[in-house]
Design a protein around this nucleic acid. Structure first.
Lengths: 236, 236
DNA sequence: CCATAACTGCGATCGATGTTCGCAGTTTCT
DNA sequence: AGAAACTGCGAACATCGATCGCAGTTATGG
């Protein structure tokens, strides 16, 4: 049973002091400040001012907590943006908003990618995405995989941008050192060339437009050109 | 410092009983059989027939072990396949071989995606991929991100295929139940439609050809059509 | 109206994890 | 030959997720 399938409150007994939403909020704040590794049962309990064992009155385990957190930040994505009817444009815009959330909550990249972590807000998100690509008239069932693919790409872009802006954790520096040392060793000429051209190479191209362009290309490849072969659908 | 930057053996002292390659092999076998969670320092030490603390003579920590494992299975990808000169075709073929490895070692999906986990075999892999897309004449530095994007897509496809073939872990079943319950609740009509068309809908399209086609489309979008605007490069 | 069932909060505790310390023994360099 | 550098490893530490049992609280049913 998922957290979402379990009722939050039974009919008997005293009212719970906290709520799932409260748990989620505390956990998200903790993760935002100190990373996902700081989100342990003990630390969440402490931040909540309660005993650690009490958390298991709300959750069946840590996985449930991650579900709550994921769904909470999914809710930050604005789904009230009207659809234009062009699947590629609408999905690209949605992807941009999704990426913004991933940048705001870097720990999302550290969450183990379960094959489905879908809460109520996740359902709304999925519905919105499917509605956006309805005009394309894709064969049934394909839509879900397109969304999954899109999100995988978004996550990858978010990782790249975070790593470009993030502090050198020491590990990153070590890896970079090993990389350039290997490049200097003479083998791997293409790698060396790629690394050499890294810092210069033009005005560093705004990552925002690069993301936009790449996303449109990929989505065009996945979902087809403009309105597809089944134009009998209206947007919204 | 990375594992790869540290020398495997000093000049003094007795010869180490084991080697990094041996550690990697044991850990990979353990993960193949019982999942990544079974790869703990204690279990690896036990499987190796040594004390747990001894592992820290070979590794600075568990992260190093994951580095070793990742690089070991990366070495399973055949890089002796000659290049045709068509970047899209060559990269798609490489992606297929990469996916095969991910299917053979499902725990790869569970490894935390550090922003660079590159050993010697990983370097060779990168070099091969860059060489494959050299004819496209991409602007400098773009190549690395294309490879990262490609691998993100491959990982996503591998996840989908594994989940289609994998045993229902109970959590999957629970999530699916919640999903269809939500679909039956009337809101989320597009979701309901997508789920309804899921089982039937044609002859279930061979995932192999779907992967091939999607990959080609995406790569074409990323890397351009045939040989690009800078045709002064020869394959090699 | 009150006994029972269902629930909550939580201290104590368990098993497992990653990592460190210190010691005894071994090999190599000077 | 002596010192330096290394190896293997038993024991321990901190932290983690999770469970058990108990005391207290609330709603339901006869």
């Amino acid at each position: 049973m998922t957290v979402w399938a379990r009722p939050e409150r039974g009919t008997r007994g005293p009212a719970a002091v906290h709520s799932r939403a409260e748990l989620a909020a505390v956990a998200v704040e903790l993760a935002d400040r100190s990373g996902l590794s700081a989100v342990s049962m003990r630390q969440v309990a402490k931040a909540l001012g309660t005993g650690q064992a009490s958390l298991y009155r709300y959750l069946a385990g840590r996985a449930d907590l991650l579900d709550l957190m994921t769904d909470a930040v999914t809710g930050e994505i604005d789904l009230d943006v009207p659809l234009s009817g062009d699947p590629v444009a609408d999905l690209a815009a949605l992807a941009a908003r999704t990426k913004a959330v991933q940048l705001r909550h870097p720990w999302l990249a550290d969450i183990p990618p379960e094959p489905l972590r879908l809460g109520p807000r996740g359902l709304d998100y999925l519905e919105y995405a499917l509605r956006a690509m309805a005009p394309a008239g894709l064969p049934g069932g394909t839509g879900l995989e397109v969304v999954a693919l899109m999100n995988a790409l978004v996550a990858q872009f978010a990782r790249t941008e975070l790593q470009a802006a993030g502090a050198d954790t020491g590990r990153r520096a070590a890896q970079a050192a090993y990389l350039s040392a290997a490049a200097a060793r003479g083998e791997h000429p293409h790698l060396a060339a790629a690394l050499a051209e890294r810092p210069g190479a033009g005005p560093a191209e705004d990552p925002q437009v690069l993301f936009e362009r790449t996303m449109r290309r990929v989505l065009t490849g996945l979902v087809g050109e403009g309105p597809g072969a089944a134009p009998s659908q209206q947007p919204s």
